[in-house]
């Protein structure tokens, strides 16, 4: 990080952009807490189904809806997103250490660890996979009869997870932009700060999902 050439004097010695991204993340805490609060406030207050954890029978048609949340699928997507955070730290480490000579006896794995392009790509791929799982989840919910208009659960669930998905999408685009720069001219230690900022955003989106997974999917 210190390798970044900062033209201007700063009072803390830190880069402006890193302070701004942390302030932004602080702000995002309030954004997601508003969404999560609303979801929890409306939990158990939907007047019609389908419902997240409970069966529901439509009194007019007699049709019974199964609990709609698909825990196995979402556990998979959660795992993928968690791993994307691992890939992200490896990408950052690779960028920070770019140009450092590898030891002569470096093995295949060591050489792979030094490839920022590989890990940026893996992070973006894991993010895109998570989004794929989410698209699958959303479409299957709609097919089963739950839309954003159906009930309080539908409105607050789709809005909360949709906002998170939008954040993941922005993160994937950001990663792809970094990847394209890396492919064009190679990212080195002087770019580490730019990658670090993206990484902070990415991990934050991940920790938000950690909270959502427990509060929405697991706690009944």
């Amino acid at each position: 990080m210190s390798a970044t050439v900062t033209h201007h004097y700063t009072s803390t010695g830190l880069d402006n952009r890193k302070i701004a991204i942390w302030a932004f993340i602080g702000s995002e805490c309030m954004l997601f807490i508003s969404l999560i609060s609303t979801y929890l406030i409306y939990k158990g207050r939907s007047v019609v189904g389908p419902l997240p954890h409970e069966k529901w029978t439509d009194p007019s048609t007699g049709h019974t809806f199964a609990p709609i949340l698909n825990i196995p699928v979402t556990s998979m997507s959660t795992f993928v997103l968690l791993m994307s955070s691992l890939f992200m730290v490896l990408a950052l480490a690779a960028v920070q250490n770019k140009g450092r000579p590898l030891p002569a006896n470096a093995g295949w794995w060591t050489r792979k660890l030094a490839s920022s392009q590989l890990w940026l790509f893996m992070t973006a791929l894991a993010g895109a996979t998570f989004l794929g799982f989410q698209a699958y989840e959303f479409t299957s919910f709609v097919n089963e009869g739950l839309t954003i208009k159906t009930n309080l659960f539908g409105s607050s669930f789709f809005t909360l997870t949709g906002f998170h998905g939008a954040h993941v999408t922005a993160g994937v685009l950001w990663l792809l932009a970094l990847l394209s720069i890396d492919a064009r001219r190679g990212l080195g230690p002087s770019d580490a700060l730019n990658v670090d900022i993206c990484a902070l955003y990415w991990h934050f989106v991940d920790v938000v999902w950690i909270a959502i997974f427990t509060l929405v999917y697991l706690i009944r």
């Binding site: 890193k18 942390w22 602080g26 702000s27 805490c29 309030m30």
Partner: peptide, 15 residues
């Protein structure tokens, strides 16, 4: 830097 810790934990506590 401890500044970042403050920028994150403060808002997190309020949230």
């Amino acid at each position: 830097h401890k500044l970042f810790r403050a920028l994150f934990t403060g808002p997190l506590l309020i949230a």
